[in-house]
Amino acid sequence: MLYVKVKTEDGEELVLEVEGMTEDEIREELAKAGFKIEEIEVYEVEP
């Protein structure tokens, strides 16, 4: 499983499960949803 931890400019932290997306695609999708991203951390969790 691939997850991203996202910190927004307003200090909110989100953890999202993503599969088959690049970091650029993740940033693009979050921007479309109205999030202003300060930091993204991508990590993989073994089942």
Rank of each mutant, 00 (worst) to 15 (best):
M1N: 07
L2V: 08
L2W: 15
Y3M: 09
Y3W: 14
V4K: 00
K5I: 10
K5C: 07
V6D: 00
V6Y: 09
K7M: 09
K7A: 04
K7E: 03
E9M: 12
E9V: 12
E9G: 09
D10A: 10
D10V: 04
D10E: 08
D10L: 07
G11Q: 02
G11P: 01
G11W: 02
E12L: 14
E12Y: 13
E13S: 09
E13M: 12
E13V: 14
E13K: 03
L14V: 08
L14T: 03
L14H: 06
V15T: 07
V15D: 03
V15K: 03
V15Q: 04
L16Y: 12
L16H: 01
L16G: 01
L16V: 05
E17D: 04
E17T: 13
E17F: 15
E17G: 07
E17S: 10
E17P: 07
V18H: 01
V18M: 10
V18I: 10
E19V: 13
E19M: 13
E19K: 13
G20Y: 09
G20E: 03
M21S: 05
M21Q: 05
T22Y: 03
T22A: 03
T22P: 02
E23D: 05
E23N: 05
E23G: 05
D24K: 11
D24P: 06
D24L: 10
E25N: 04
E25A: 07
I26E: 00
R27P: 00
R27S: 03
R27N: 02
R27Y: 09
E28T: 10
E28D: 08
E28H: 10
E28Q: 11
E29Y: 15
E29C: 15
E29V: 15
L30F: 09
A31N: 06
A31R: 13
A31E: 09
K32W: 06
K32E: 03
A33K: 13
A33W: 15
A33S: 07
A33P: 01
A33T: 05
G34T: 02
G34D: 01
F35C: 06
K36S: 07
K36Q: 06
K36R: 10
K36C: 08
K36N: 08
I37Y: 09
I37L: 09
I37V: 10
E39S: 15
E39L: 12
E39R: 10
E39P: 02
E39F: 13
I40A: 03
I40V: 06
E41S: 10
V42A: 04
V42F: 14
V42R: 05
Y43L: 08
Y43I: 08
Y43R: 05
E44V: 13
E44S: 13
E44I: 13
E44T: 13
V45P: 07
V45C: 11
E46N: 13
P47T: 09
P47L: 09
P47K: 07
P47I: 08
